[in-house]
Design a protein around this nucleic acid. Sequence first.
DNA 1: GGCCTAATTCAACATGTGTTGAGCGCAGGA
DNA 2: TCCTGCGCTCAACACATGTTGAATTAGGCC
Lengths: 207, 207
Amino acid sequence: MGHDGTVTAEPERRRGRRPGGADTRAALLTAARAVFTESGYDGATVRAIARRAGVDPAMVNHWFGGKEALFAEAVLHLPFNPKALIAEILKGDREVLGERIIRTFLTNWDAQDGGVFAAMIRSVSAHEQVANALREFFVHQVFGQIVSAMHDDGSALLRANLVASQMIGLGMVRYVARFDPASTADVETLVAAIGPTIQRYLTGPIG
Amino acid sequence: MGHDGTVTAEPERRRGRRPGGADTRAALLTAARAVFTESGYDGATVRAIARRAGVDPAMVNHWFGGKEALFAEAVLHLPFNPKALIAEILKGDREVLGERIIRTFLTNWDAQDGGVFAAMIRSVSAHEQVANALREFFVHQVFGQIVSAMHDDGSALLRANLVASQMIGLGMVRYVARFDPASTADVETLVAAIGPTIQRYLTGPIG
DNA sequence: GGCCTAATTCAACATGTGTTGAGCGCAGGA
DNA sequence: TCCTGCGCTCAACACATGTTGAATTAGGCC
């Protein structure tokens, strides 16, 4: 054991307010993201999160109101703005839209090591809410908007599903299951390999 | 039954051996697969499985030795033989290898509604063992064998990763998160849409 | 400097978990 | 028919979880 943040053998915790401007709330958020990422919602315990943050488990209830609310605040709110990214993606050349999507996807998740993505995937079984969020996010909020901007026949939803399947699969092997070399390959390698797939799902023949 | 005054709503379980040849072991296996599929390893409780099977929770220990062993027997052993399927796949025309892979993948998992696939995915966080099994299965045991039979440069592993990412993503949207229309589309629609992707990952240019 | 409020720890509770041992009763052979 | 053994239920245990209330201390305002 001893894989948590606490260092000294005897931290000498006293009761009452701690001296210094220790930002307990922020520490809990950081620790929660780490533990939820590794273990999912069920596997992560309030006690483990508090230990990682170096505070008492009761602080979770004091600052957030409970485990569920902490999960929502730490994991369920994305570290970037999808709408702004979509707008940016749609600006450039539509012949290489697929490559831009992969590049944006990877650089944004890589920036935080895919933590939130992994946490969401590892929690799909616990919270039905999470599965719905995943579906909503990928199909309607992201790729659906992109696809429906270029197809008005019945194929839009299927195309969005296809794109989502490849992106989720990419996230699974890179951030969750950590396949090799997918988890270590540089972004442009994957852009070159998978970009054309996305491009065909978006604009090519699929039947 | 129950034409006397005292009406017992309960099934009136008595102790001792139950009459009739009730195959408790098989009932537990079926129930376990269902519950593990819905809730993953952690979310599934021994009591829930036993209730579903209509028997006492202690039967899990009596017949399997514990929850872990039941999970291994119910989920971790595949309902089909991958090696035989690979041999079959490699027989036909290599120009449409991708389509055959998708078709085989879907028809075999569809046959049991993707239950085992969903159960494994929903348990990756709980059992590190499961993540390893997933990696081993997809990369080395399945697609690695296919790819390394046609490439001897350094691209074989990356190609296998790419194929695995698309297949896992497909399984995610069809069996786990149950996107629409991916979860309801017929097999040939998906074969036509995704087959070329796999084909390019196997034999096409990826750099 | 003294007081009030907020921040923190501690101990405890209620609940749900996997597992165990004891005892009961039907099945099948003698 | 009796007897042994296996299938089965029941009650309980030991433990881990999320959450709560009381107790305690420090910071900030007058």
